[in-house]
């Protein structure tokens, strides 16, 4: 059985359709990039897979769990146990420093552990920025904190929504290299939304979306 299975997902926002019946499967350990113009429904799809949003109809299975049927608290539990999110705007808590931002995610998961948080930040190369607040860090550094935060609870699924959208090419490359290294070492599944053709070259598979449906689905040949 596939790691992620989507069956005929429809999402409506009022009269507008964000998704018009999407079905697909993703295997465990796969790195999938979702591309498409803005408004094509790619972020909505990502959020539904990550349990941040619920479909109007259709079924979502992650590791065999039917997440569209979970209660709100079970869904919160699913998010903290299974997923790690990285957003375009970094969404860090402004009054907490780098370590504390990572620890906050640990706290919601089980308990805050400073050593582990420092370890997570070291893995993303931020060991020299532990006590800095987000406002004192560059965009690339902020995104790296987000990746450290997303990975600190050992998720099986990393979801990234335009993680490099606010970054220059150099920083983008650094983030992608980091993701690639972590992916090859730890084998979690990555789903990444982007509209940048450069970014979509990374990974193993590209889904093209348009107007709420999947237009094409092709593997990337390295």
């Amino acid at each position: 059985m596939s790691f992620i299975i989507l069956k005929n997902i429809v999402k409506e926002y009022g009269p507008a359709h964000a998704l018009r019946g999407v079905s697909m499967e993703i295997q465990k350990g796969q790195w999938v990039n979702i591309m498409g113009p803005s408004g094509s429904g790619k972020s909505t799809l990502l959020n539904i897979i990550g349990g941040l949003d619920t479909p109007t109809s259709g079924e979502v299975f992650v590791e065999g769990i039917k997440i569209n049927a979970l209660s709100e608290d079970d869904l919160a539990c699913f998010r903290r146990e299974k997923t790690g999110f990285v957003f375009q705007q970094s969404h860090l808590v402004p009054y907490l420093d780098a370590v504390e931002n990572v620890m906050l995610a640990q706290y919601f998961h089980s308990m805050a552990d400073e050593e582990e948080a420092v370890g997570a930040l070291t893995r993303v190369g931020l060991e020299h920025r532990l006590k800095h607040r987000p406002s004192q860090l560059s965009g690339g550094e902020q995104q790296r904190i987000c990746i450290a935060r997303a990975l600190t609870n050992d998720p099986v699924l990393l979801l990234a929504d335009e993680p490099t959208g606010n970054l220059d090419r150099e920083n983008t490359k650094m983030i992608l290299e980091l993701l690639k290294k972590l992916h090859s070492e730890e084998h979690f599944t990555i789903i990444l939304v982007t509209h940048d053709p450069f970014v979509s070259q990374w990974g193993e598979r590209v889904l093209m979306m348009e107007d709420g449906s999947i237009k094409s689905d092709a593997p990337i040949n390295p």
Binding site: L52, E72, D73, A76, C77, F78, R79, R80, E81, T83, F85, F87, H91, V93, L104, A105, F108, H109, R149, N153
Partner: peptide, 16 residues
């Protein structure tokens, strides 16, 4: 509100 949304995304329950 953004902070609350973030906490939810991180998997915090309502009670937390």
């Amino acid at each position: 509100r953004e902070e609350i949304g973030l906490m939810k995304a991180l998997g915090a329950t309502k009670a937390q």
